[in-house]
Design a binder for these strands. Structure first.
Lengths: 230, 230
DNA sequence: GCTATTTGATGATATAAATCATGTAAAAGC
DNA sequence: GCTTTTACATGATTTATATCATCAAATAGC
C-alpha cells in the first residue's frame, strides 16, 4: 500500500518555506514518523466526516479540496500542491475532516501524525509563526472566495477563478490544467453548462484562449476588471 | 476618546476561555498595554483595507464582521461578542484588515497591540493551543458558510442563519436581536426583500414567530430539515 | 481497433432571485 | 407632539441562472 517515495525529509522538504524553519533533528523526527503514499488520479486522500489523524504533505502532483453537501453538490475550496501540507482545522477541534481531498492527477503525499506536528509547533517558534501565517492566508482566501461567490455574477466569478489558477495555483500563463469544466464550475459556484458558456464568451471576446488542457489569459487587465466589477 | 472601562484585565478576562490560560503576570502585561474604548451602535471599529495594528477583545456589546465589495455589497462573515477577541488574519500576513467590524449596539472593546499577542503566543503553549483551536473553529464556520451560500436555495440559507443565531450567537430561543432585515439578508447572501419574504413564509408555516426584535424558532426539527436540504 | 462512457458543447425552457415601485409602520429628530 | 426618515413589507416585472434535452468529440476499457 505505501511506497517510500523520498529517501529522507531533509532532501525533500528543503523546498517548502515552512519546513525550512525546522532543524535537521526536527526533520529527522518527522522523517521517522511519516508514511509516504502514492495516489492515482481520482483517489480520495481523506473524506469529509472521517476521523482526522494526520497532516498531509504533498510531495508531487496535486489535490483538490472540496466540501460536499447532502445532495452531492460540491464546492472546491482550494488545492494542495508540492511541497506543502494541508491545514486541516479538524486537527485542532473535533478530530474530524470538514472537507474532502482527492488527487487531481498522480500524487504522492507524506502523512504525519497530528501529535508530531503539535510538538513541532510547541517547540519551534519560527515554525509556529510560519504556520500561523499560512493559516491566516487561507482564512483570507476563504473570505475572498465567499465575497466572490455572493457578490459577483458569473463572469466575475469565472474571472476570479481563472486569475487564481494562473497566479495562485499554476504560477504561469498560459497554464496546463487537468481540471475539468465541472471543476471550474465547482470553484465558481455555477453549473457545468454555465461554466462552459462563460468560457465561450471569454474566448469570443478574446480574453482567453483554450486549447485542450491549456488555458491562456490574453487580456489580463480586462479580466481583472471583470473580476473587480462582477 | 478612550474611556477606561474595566479596572484590570484580571477581573475582566477570567470569563473568556482562552484568557484563562494566561497567568496573572501575563494578564498584567496585557493590562498594561491595552486601550479600552466605547463604540456607539453603527460605529466602525476597524475598516477593511486599513492597517492592522491591534487585536480587539470585546468586553460588552457585539460587533458584526463583514466583507465589502466594490459595489457596496456586504456579506456578514461573523460576529464578535464578550468576552472574545477577533482573529484578524492580516495580523500574521500583510498587516491589513481583510474585513470590517462595526458595533451592532453599544459596545466596549480593549485593543491590544499585535506584538503583545505574539509574545503571549510564543511564551504560553496552552494559550497558543487554545488560540489555534479558535482559529480552526472559525475556518470551519467559513467552510460551512460557503457551503450554505453556494449549495442551498434561499429557505435553506435563511434556516442556516436563524439556527446559527439561536445556537451560536445568542445561545437562546427565543432570542432578542438588534440585527436588521438587511443584516439577515447580508448573512445569507440574498437581498433584503427576499429575506423579508422568506421570513414571512417561515411565519406562515409556523416555523418561527417574530415580534419586534424577538425571533423564536417554533419548529426546530423542521427548520433543521430545511437547513439540510436547502 | 472497436465499443461504451464521459466530457464538452449548444439550444430551449423553466425556475430562482433580483429589481423596481409603492405603501405602512416604527423610530428618530426637533 | 409633530414631522421626517428609516425599516418592514408587498406586488409586479425583469434578469440571472439552472435544468433538461440532445449531439459531437474525446477518453477509457476490453
Amino acid at each position: 500500500m505505501a511506497n517510500t517515495i523520498e529517501s529522507h525529509c531533509l532532501h525533500c522538504m528543503q523546498r517548502s518555506d515552512i519546513f525550512t524553519k525546522l532543524a535537521e533533528g526536527e526533520l529527522a523526527q518527522v522523517n521517522a514518523c511519516r508514511v509516504s503514499i502514492r495516489y492515482h488520479a481520482g483517489e480520495v486522500v481523506f473524506k469529509q466526516g472521517s476521523p482526522c489523524h494526520d497532516f498531509v504533505c504533498i510531495t508531487s502532483g496535486m489535490l483538490k479540496l472540496y466540501r460536499e453537501d447532502e445532495n452531492d453538490k460540491r464546492i472546491i475550496i482550494g488545492f494542495a500542491k508540492p511541497v506543502d501540507y494541508i491545514f486541516v482545522p479538524g486537527a485542532f477541534t473535533d478530530k474530524r475532516h470538514h472537507f474532502s481531498a482527492i488527487a487531481c492527477e498522480e500524487t504522492t503525499a507524506c502523512l504525519v501524525g497530528i501529535e508530531v506536528f503539535e510538538k513541532l509547533l510547541r517547540d519551534n517558534h519560527d515554525f509556529a509563526a510560519a504556520f500561523m501565517a499560512k493559516i491566516s492566508e487561507q482564512s483570507i482566501r476563504f473570505i475572498e472566495q465567499m465575497s466572490s461567490l455572493v457578490q459577483k455574477q458569473m463572469p466575475g466569478r469565472m474571472a476570479d477563478v481563472l486569475i487564481e489558477l494562473s497566479k495562485g495555483v499554476y504560477n504561469s500563463n498560459p497554464f496546463v490544467s487537468s481540471l475539468s469544466r465541472q471543476d471550474l464550475a465547482d470553484m465558481s459556484g455555477m453549473t457545468k453548462e454555465s461554466a462552459i458558456r462563460i468560457l465561450k464568451t471569454f474566448r469570443d471576446d478574446e480574453l482567453i484562449r483554450t486549447e485542450g488542457d491549456t488555458i491562456e489569459i490574453l487580456n489580463y487587465p480586462m479580466l481583472e476588471r471583470i473580476s473587480r466589477n462582477g
